[in-house]
Design a protein around this nucleic acid. Structure first.
Lengths: 149, 149
DNA sequence: TATTGTTATACTCTATAACTATA
DNA sequence: TATAGTTATAGAGTATAACAATA
């Protein structure tokens, strides 16, 4: 249903349902909720998984680069990195090229956790994608990409 | 670009870009960011505007009903209602039919603020929709609705 | 018993500002 | 000056738990 629960049998074709941003927020909320349930055992958040994934794809990546890729503030990035470091999932190394930068690398525990996380993400994605055909998934990704480009 | 900033000239067609949930989160973040900028003067959040809008569309609505429509927890709803009440945008009245329920109504200040908010939402929506044709907007809303239904 | 509202608590994300170190 | 990281702070949303009042 476009609006969550019409509650009664009222018409309820309120203009708020025609607001694109409204649907983006609800869809995001639904995804976040399911993600959280899927990851309760692993005790990881969406952002944390994204960071582990990107550090694995780009060993030695700097915090600033991470922040840009995930559209985060530097301070926000710090908070996430701190939590992951406290769990020994990654480490900070001083960059050789630029003394200001910290090069990030996954620790063994981080590699192991990422492997488990990717499997959980597979389940989570299957839940989301079950509503769509392959063609629709590609279309949706294309449309959403135009927003966050 | 699918991934925020490729930073270097690297290929970077990492699998994370094929994750639908990843794009939903980024798109939501971009919308939230622009929304916040648009509403700095009005000092309202997305959730707060949604609540004002729904209370206006459904005078006397109960907090539980609001929570269902916006997919929120009761405690979360309370926090939002409290802030709006502190600003004198709405009031709680004891329901006649059910003593457990609180009937919510907009105060004059809330009506005025909602009018301004709707205009700001128009600008915000124009920003989001500028990327799409009318047909694509309807398509996107349809696809997103399947996720939060 | 179940529902509604309420309070308290905690965590994450987000953002700003100010500070240090390096370029 | 500009960049990268750091720290402190604050607000908002989310969720859980426990409690009181009402149905």
């Amino acid at each position: 249903m476009a609006t969550p629960p019409p509650a009664d049998g009222e018409a309820d074709i309120g203009a708020i349902n025609e607001i694109l941003g409204f649907h983006i927020r609800l869809a995001h909320g639904a995804c976040l909720r399911h993600f959280t349930e899927t990851f309760t055992d692993l005790d990881l958040t969406q952002k944390q998984v994204s960071v582990l994934w990107l550090v694995d794809d780009h060993p030695g990546i700097a915090q600033t680069d991470l922040a840009q890729r995930l559209r985060m503030d530097r301070a926000t990035t710090m908070a996430i990195i701190n939590r992951l470091q406290a769990k020994h999932f990654l480490r900070r190394d001083r960059s050789d090229k630029d003394g200001r930068k910290q090069a990030l690398f996954l620790e063994p525990a981080g590699v192991a956790m990422l492997a488990r996380a990717k499997q959980a993400i597979g389940e989570h994605e299957a839940w989301v994608k079950s509503r769509f055909s392959d063609k629709e998934v590609k279309l949706l990704i294309d449309l959403l990409s135009r927003i966050h480009e």
